[in-house]
Design a protein around this nucleic acid. Structure first.
Lengths: 335, 335
DNA sequence: CTGAAAGCGCTAACAT
DNA sequence: ATGTTAGCGCTTTCAG
């Protein structure tokens, strides 16, 4: 790599002159500025980022820690974060916790050594279950800002970007009720996450708020990946009066749809299905899945904005929680 | 952040003593080492990565540039790269080119300033169409190693990790022939990519190699995202003798499957479908999609291994191209 | 066994 | 208008 020193030597000026010239300092003569700049361009000079960052204590880099990049929601969030960060002149360093607390701790430690100006993260499942957030709260002590999105905890004092999970599930359920559905079940493989519990609560509340719904809520908690398909199929098989499904995670909606079709249910005549997700491959189902749309791009964008704000202004202002609106998008699996 | 200097002051020793102690130098007395280390732990000292990297000209960071993170193949590749890199003590800085050459150039420039030790990338569609790789070849001049994966070009001299696209499509097509299929069409929305062309060639060759296949190849090139569904549906509608589909991109296989079902085709009795992709959400189709499996994890792992090798040993050894085997995974959409 | 000093590449206050 | 110097935090040679 070409350095300031090399430019200086070739031009017979001092390093500081070169530095100033490249920054258009008015201490430097227009003539010199020109000479410096043209040589810099010729030699493809680029200021060493490490040196600049070391000097300025500013890396213009954001650490992003997500639980699982194969989950389309997080992939899209990452996409949004990268895009917005890039627009604002920031790079992102990505770590994947794989839902493990150990990996989360490791990543945090690895990067909180001057590598990044702040973090955007969503909490690993293991961490959320353990309800232990010391490693995240430690960042505040080191004066490193964090923004949490989607999976958050009230035991962490920092900026947050969430969706109204309770309200979204409430709305979805209410829609099914308005269709006249009489036996609405909920599928969830995320019941151990804060967002999952909130969505389940929204569903339950919507049912209990309905005067004419004479049933108990029926929530089917899915555990291991492998059994999901079987459990969903069996649930539908065992009770053919089920006429509404609220699937609060990313995949069980599609699976339920396919299983219902396989069992000969007419959709949406006999049975309505509403999933949770942003638009993606799911839209290729037939009929197309109705979903609660999460506006993932907005989530990412807001997370970046909050973080950059916090970086530039490490004031002691209170943490902010931004709630991104959701949308009930009715497609082919609802009436 | 706690610095060496602060430790040194508190312990009344010099900075260099502290540094050596933390590295277990045998120039330092065991006693001092102990005192230094315990204080370091107490104060949660972490060496400033920027300073270390600046000093050592080694960042232990890999720049990853992918065309589109919402494409499940690239998401999985990123997952694999991150995992392997992390295991080997490297961080990754992720940039998304969004299939744009301009963004690709920008990202490369942004990071080839000491931020990373090398790059792993897959070429943007625009770049591949333009057939202009100056920005990538520039890296070699700067002695920054690159590993290309999946989308590569023979006009770039560097290590590469690819799959045998031609062979994979050839195999898939041959399988359909072996089923006795007589009218096999190919769907592709990636015909402008090197990998797409190779796959199409594999399909064409397999057909021409078959003595008893009395038809011309029929390749349907899909262009804009919006029309894909309509085109596929119309193709199937217009010719109800189609009894085999090779879908060489990530999504058209699922779409074709759904459209065929919608049109009342029996699968796999009337019609077999083979898609290209790693296992993912596609597997939730019913019947489950048969695919050419790409072993994305292997691809990512090999890319990292090649790059780290190149970083540690910037010898002038010839570029290596690794070809990762594919697998034809027969599920429910083939006999 | 410990410390002083130089230097990685850069910026900026302070001379000249 | 240009140069000198110090320093960001660290490692490492060289002196003591």
């Amino acid at each position: 790599m070409v350095t300031l020193k090399q430019l200086a030597e070739q031009l017979n000026v001092s390093v500081s002159t070169v530095s100033k010239a490249l920054h258009d300092s008015d201490e430097i003569s227009p003539d010199t500025i020109e000479r410096v700049k043209s040589l810099a361009k010729l030699l493809n000079y680029k200021p060493n980022k490490l040196a600049v960052s070391l000097k300025s204590s500013k890396t213009n880099t954001i650490g992003v820690i997500i639980p699982n990049i194969l989950n389309h929601f997080f992939a899209k969030a990452l996409y949004a974060i990268e895009k917005e960060a890039s627009d604002k002149g920031y790079n992102i360093i990505t770590c994947v916790s794989n839902e493990l607390q150990s990996k989360e701790i490791e990543s945090l430690q690895l990067l909180s050594n001057g590598s990044v100006d702040g973090f955007i993260m969503s909490i690993a499942e293991e961490t959320q279950v353990a309800n232990d957030f010391d490693h995240i709260n430690l960042l505040a002590q080191q004066n490193i800002p964090v923004v949490l999105f989607d999976r958050v905890s009230e035991n962490i004092a920092c900026d947050k970007v969430i969706i109204d999970d309770f309200g979204a599930a409430y709305e979805a359920t209410k829609h099914l009720l308005s269709e006249g559905r009489k036996n609405i079940v909920l599928f969830s493989d995320i019941e151990d996450l804060s967002v999952g519990k909130l969505r389940t609560n929204g569903y339950t509340k919507a049912l209990s708020d309905a005067d004419d719904y004479g049933r108990q809520p029926k929530t089917i908690i899915l555990k291991s990946d492998d059994a999901i398909e079987a459990v969903i199929e069996k649930t539908l098989q065992d009770d053919d009066t089920i006429d509404g499904i609220v699937a609060v995670d990313n995949v069980s909606g599609v699976i339920a749809l396919h299983k219902a079709l396989k069992l000969g249910r007419n959709i949406p005549e006999d049975l309505s299905v509403i999933g949770f997700s942003d638009e993606n491959i799911l839209k290729f189902t037939n009929p197309k899945l109705s979903t609660v749309s999460q506006h993932t791009l907005e989530i990412g964008k807001n997370a970046v904005a909050l973080l950059i704000d916090r970086i530039n202004n490490k004031g002691v202002s209170q943490p902010i929680t931004k709630t991104i609106r959701t949308n009930l998008v009715l497609r082919g699996t609802t009436r």
